[in-house]
Design a protein around this nucleic acid. Structure first.
Lengths: 129, 129
DNA sequence: ATCAATAACGATAACAGTTACTATAATCAA
DNA sequence: TTGATTATAGTAACTGTTATCGTTATTGAT
């Protein structure tokens, strides 16, 4: 069972995720929350980020090359990762969950979900070039 | 520059990727090629897998939890990862590359590509349960 | 308010996957 | 065959993450 207990550190992490659009890595969260709790441990950040993700209060975005990113916005949406600067941006795009059925057509197992990341160049990086 | 030189080890790795449907991890490739080259180094396997991926002769599939998988079949296709047994299976599904345009609609940057992994339970694991 | 039970903490070690280094060996063009 | 250069094996180092452990904080019952 493991009843959940309140902690100020977890609350601060949650708060940060709720207010930033940066899709921070665990380390970025650590550096930010460290300002309020100078003695916080990186392990505490990881533990709470995973806890929040497991409870559905945050999304963990797995990326190739570099650490996972975390997103406090849990409504279904897709992500874009800029291959130039590494920024992760929320995409405002129509629902494409129908691709699960497309995938299931010639497949014997059960398709439950999918994860997508779109890659390319973000507006800022286009401007700079 | 950097002219490529033949190596028996690289050839063996390529051969293995071309004949297996297992989407092996670097370590699985290592263990297999070790049978032909008992003194091969894991570093050699990584170096060549990345080389092949860079040259477009193999695909590197990034997965959350656990190492990247490699696929010698380079024609465009999608992958399914069984959350029960970890197996990666090629999906025989119709092309969905149009989702790149869908994503680009309300987006200022340039969408160049995407990566998808479908998750669920494979036929073998359904049977066992 | 005090206490006991236990979840969460901070510090640090351990771990997995991967890359970097270096001296030796294999490839290849002249 | 020689010389230039790439690839190798072996190993150390590195990154991102999880586990361990003694101490602290939270909570529910007294």
């Amino acid at each position: 069972m493991a009843a959940l207990k309140y902690s100020r550190q977890r609350e601060s992490i949650k708060q940060y995720l709720a207010t930033t659009y940066d899709h921070p890595t665990a380390d970025m969260v650590y550096l930010h929350v460290k300002e309020e709790f100078p003695s916080i441990s990186l392990g505490t950040v990881y533990r709470n980020l995973n806890l929040l993700a497991d409870m559905g209060e945050a999304i963990k975005i797995a990326t190739p090359n570099g650490g996972d990113r975390f997103d406090g916005r849990t409504n279904p949406h897709n992500h874009f990762l800029c291959t130039k600067c590494g920024k992760v941006i929320d995409l405002d795009m129509e629902d494409i969950s129908h691709i699960n059925e497309t995938a299931a057509k010639n497949f014997d197992g059960i398709i439950e979900s999918h994860s997508i990341i779109f890659y390319g160049t973000c507006a800022d990086c286009i401007e700079k070039s």
